[in-house]
């Protein structure tokens, strides 16, 4: 083999190795999406609250020594012609105490609409400690034109809530569910 063709062969094999680096970078870019969800869920750092029911069969101890203020807010996102707000703007609860509150939604449009509520908790670290037993956010909600619906949530604040947190805000953003999504669900 001439010197020239040796160089060419070396160049080719190095280039192939570098293409592997590029492929790994691309895979990593996409892997960040599930990775992000897993990490955030595990350490509860992005304020994403659970949308599945908490199992309370083991029982919870109520911490009567602490009082936590819970603030409720709600909003509808563009494209959803609903009125939506909490019925109580705030509550005082003891950690571990199971409490019921509710939101009210009204369909202001002239067609039946399916919506889905996405909860979020501030401060973010409190998200892991906001436990819902029952919530309208667990499933899609359908409202007929003009229909008014009371939407309850039953929840408790885990006694593990860090001592430094005295106030927790629960916010719901209601989104319109696309018709084709609704069929799939």
């Amino acid at each position: 083999m001439s010197a020239n063709s040796i160089i060419k062969a070396n160049n080719k094999s190095l280039a192939i190795k570098l293409v592997v680096v590029v492929a790994a970078g691309l895979a990593f870019g996409f892997a960040l999406a599930p990775l992000y969800d897993v990490v955030c869920k595990a350490i509860g750092i992005n304020g994403k609250a659970d949308i599945t029911a908490t199992d309370i069969s083991k029982g919870i101890t109520v911490d009567k020594s602490r009082v936590v203020t819970i603030l409720f807010t709600g909003q509808t996102m563009p494209g959803l012609d609903w009125s939506f707000d909490s019925n109580q703007s705030s509550m005082q609860v003891h950690p571990g105490e199971i409490t019921l509150t509710s939101y009210t939604a009204r369909n202001d449009g002239d067609k039946p609409i399916v919506g889905t509520a996405v909860p979020s908790v501030v401060p973010e670290v409190a998200a892991l400690h906001f436990k819902k037993i029952e919530c309208f956010c667990f499933s899609n909600q359908t409202l007929q034109p003009g229909e008014v619906k009371d939407m309850p949530i039953r929840y408790y604040i885990s006694p593990d809530l860090p001592k430094s947190i005295n106030t927790v805000t629960l916010s719901y953003a209601f989104y319109k569910v696309d018709d084709k999504d609704a069929e799939n669900n």
Binding site: A23, A24, L26, G29, F30, A33, Y175
Partner: peptide
């Protein structure tokens, strides 16, 4: 190392825009 990651982000943006994925859509 970094350009492919941008390609990933842009592709997810594109599928969110046109193919009904919700990588970045809270709904």
């Amino acid at each position: 190392a970094s350009m492919p990651v941008l390609a990933g982000a842009l592709t997810m943006l594109l599928t969110d825009r046109h193919f009904g994925t919700t990588f970045f859509d809270a709904a």
